[in-house]
Design a protein around this nucleic acid. Sequence first.
DNA 1: ACCTGAACACCGTTCAAGT
DNA 2: ACCTGAACACCGTTCAAGT
Lengths: 188, 188
Amino acid sequence: MPSRGLDREAWVRLAVDILAEEGLAGLRVEAMAKRLGVTKGSFYWHFKDRQALLDAVLEEWRAGRIQDCQRQAEVSPDRAAEQLRHVMDAYAINPNRKGVMIELAVRDWARRDKAAAAAVEEVDEARRTNATRLFLAAGFSQDQAEMRALLLYTHAFGLSMMVFERQVDAVARLHAAITTLIAGSPQS
Amino acid sequence: MPSRGLDREAWVRLAVDILAEEGLAGLRVEAMAKRLGVTKGSFYWHFKDRQALLDAVLEEWRAGRIQDCQRQAEVSPDRAAEQLRHVMDAYAINPNRKGVMIELAVRDWARRDKAAAAAVEEVDEARRTNATRLFLAAGFSQDQAEMRALLLYTHAFGLSMMVFERQVDAVARLHAAITTLIAGSPQS
DNA sequence: ACCTGAACACCGTTCAAGT
DNA sequence: ACCTGAACACCGTTCAAGT
């Protein structure tokens, strides 16, 4: 559709893809302009500077992650236990490369940038609230639900950051046991 | 001491500090040369290119983290339970900014670089083995020890990546409960 | 409204030349 | 052995000028 006249969105979409493939260092105005078939001067019509593009990418990420949480919240209120396992596996065992790359880049960035830190905090809170809701629906007490939700999230996230090429099977087995420990039985 | 004649080490030491403060993007040859009071041409006497410096920083990180694990392994074999709690708090609640920044940068990098991925894998394995040893000493079975060691590590790591400025106290309380769940009682 | 083209500063890299 | 100085390419940024 961008036959003539690019918009901000085209730049942001490309930036998100590049961020996932090459990391922050890949977000170069000139290289992106070449890929879009325009001169880099064009970039500065849509954005104040490179930082403005980064801010737009950040906002895209924030809004998308919040939306993901809301979509999950619409799933059937019964079968909460099943969905807990599903959420754990989705994040921990089969994290999509693209998502993980962007999480890494955004969190790295959040260490130096107030706005990025605020976005990360908002997303972390939404995910935690979402998981807490699932544990409550599965019959856990408020305290237990909050505790297990945090643990589910930190574990899934931590695991997705790690490299276990030589031990994928062993780690998958341990992850299954961990899922049972965390999502196990309401009476514990 | 570097009154005349810098060595590789001086560049690597500076690079590690900058990596922690500013991230990968801060590792610019010219900026570092200015900080060391030499021209950037000097850099290329010690290193083939910028990538060679990154490789040296990576190796410094790898060796240091492995050494940390070995130091912990020398602590008194009794009191394993206490030390488990200590390890968890050290990593999860009071992660030093510098360490976390470097972990983030290295793992981001490992997504695109085979050597970085290998270093990360080695460090992950050493830490996991270390934690497993502690759980075994605390009386857990082999399976339980491996499972809890992984969980301790993923949780601590995941938590250190998150932003909870508005809820530090609540999260600290949840972390205490999690510590009990993970390091709790051998019979469970 | 959207883009080009040229200019400038900064930085990675090379290398001949200095001490 | 270690460094300088100059050169070149690449890229972020600006801006007057084009359509």
